[in-house]
Design a protein around this nucleic acid. Sequence first.
DNA 1: ATGGCTGCTTTGAGCAGA
Length: 262
Amino acid sequence: MTARIIAWNVNSVRVREARLVALLERHKPAALCLQELKCVDADFPHAAVRAVGYEATTFGQKTYNGVAVLAPAGAEVSDVVRGFGDDVDDPQARVLAVTVNGVRVVSAYVPNGGELGSEKWAYKQAWYARLGRWLPSVGAGGDAPFVLCGDFNVAWDERDVAKPDNWRDGVLFHSDARALLHTVVQGAGLTDTLRQHHAEPNLLSWWDYRNLGFQKNDGLRIDYVFANPAAAARCVAAGIDRDERRGQQPSDHAPVWADFEG
DNA sequence: ATGGCTGCTTTGAGCAGA
């Protein structure tokens, strides 16, 4: 029996309520990390989630951002940390840590970054630096299993972009953007679970709603489940649920998952 | 591809996403 952990940028949890319920029933994850709830905690669809046996720990925000970790109703959930808790005055709800049955789980929504050189880019750079400082405090370097899940708004390497030349000057794939992601992930000693099991290119997690992006598989892999050594050693499979991107009113992101034994 | 789509907002044109 393996335990599945999923990261999904839901792009409005209220619009995606039926899809969220179906996803829980389809995968029966041990933990589901959501990003871009786009609502405050009171507006989260708790009743629908409870009806299928799950409980959500939320860190919501009006209109933008918002993250959550969902776990089976019987799971032991503890040590909830909302936000970096550093000295930066930041109203954006983008990171949440929760321990689920002894596994430390982080749901993260990294800023997009607008354009290189913009204020939003500076915020993205600063946010990555804050993430890197915060991760040790929530157990990334510990002996217990730890996973960092979410939308990192950076494609790791050439294999993770369908048309790399179109994105080299942008905030999602510029070498400076990749360096931000690489520095934080490697600095924390984490492993990309998808690449533990798959080396091939064009395993993507986001496709633009415009221009038939999904139909042409013209997109990027910007969503990840990263694992510390204790978790990575138990990771037996990983993948992307492309089917979630099909049909009526999909999120523009597909869920990415990793299975852990023990 | 200066747009193209989608979701949000003190309801409706503008912002933000990626």
